[in-house]
């Protein structure tokens, strides 16, 4: 036995058409990070088999009645120790040029921001791509990732670009989707038992 997998399964609120899904994926594809605006991360859809590409075709996305796509998150990071050294160098250079003894706190913060942006523009992003497989007709979707932060971002992205709401597969969705109103009321009125005492 091998292949240990971790994932979250969702129930999807509705069944969009193939065209709606494809258009939603293309609209929600991952874009470039706008470093000039101080942003250091971006997310969105990428191809399943090659998450570095967003050149989608229906042949890649739809296979055997399933939708295949990646949810990718790119994040640019400047290590704190690197930022500290570059900032120190920049501050010393400004002090030397101006003949001043020290900089005001606000000036230093402004310089730190500039230095960070300059370093970000030279950095390579950390890229994480998570597999997504969606059985559209069954309204079942799996994201192969369990990070809470990634899940939240993915759920919001699916809502924004595909117009669907995702509910994680758990006891509450089983009860909501499988029981009628009267059985649900009965379940909600049950009281806990104690197996140890048999009561």
């Amino acid at each position: 036995m091998g292949n240990r997998v971790t994932f979250v399964t969702y129930r999807v609120s509705q069944i969009p058409s193939e065209d709606e899904i494809f258009e939603g994926i293309v609209r929600g594809k991952i874009g470039k990070v706008d470093l000039a605006l101080g942003k250091d991360r971006t997310c969105g859809f990428a191809r399943f088999q090659n998450p570095l590409s967003t050149d989608f075709s229906k042949e890649d996305v739809f296979f055997q009645g399933l939708v295949f796509v990646s949810f990718r998150i790119d994040k640019y990071v400047v290590p704190a120790s690197t930022l500290r050294l570059y900032l120190k160098e920049r501050v010393e250079s400004i002090l030397k040029e101006s003949g001043r003894q020290r900089l005001r706190k606000e000036e230093k913060e402004e310089i730190a921001d500039e230095v960070r942006k300059s370093l970000l523009s030279k950095a390579l992003p950390a890229i994480n791509a998570y597999k997504v497989i969606w059985a559209v007709e069954k309204r079942v979707l799996r994201l192969f990732c369990t990070s809470r932060a990634v899940r939240d971002e993915f759920e919001a992205w699916m809502h924004e670009f595909l117009g669907v709401t995702l509910s994680p597969f758990n006891m509450a969705t089983i009860v909501r989707d499988s029981l009628g109103q009267s059985a649900m009321q009965k379940v909600l009125h049950l009281l806990p038992v104690n197996f140890g005492s048999g009561q």
């Binding site: 036995m1 091998g2 292949n3 240990r4 997998v5 971790t6 994932f7 979250v8 399964t9 369990t146 994680p168 597969f169 758990n170 006891m171 509450a172 089983i174």
Partner: peptide, 10 residues
């Protein structure tokens, strides 16, 4: 919560 944390598949 009946969430599957992991599965080792055959």
């Amino acid at each position: 919560d009946l969430c599957i944390r992991s599965i080792a598949l055959p």
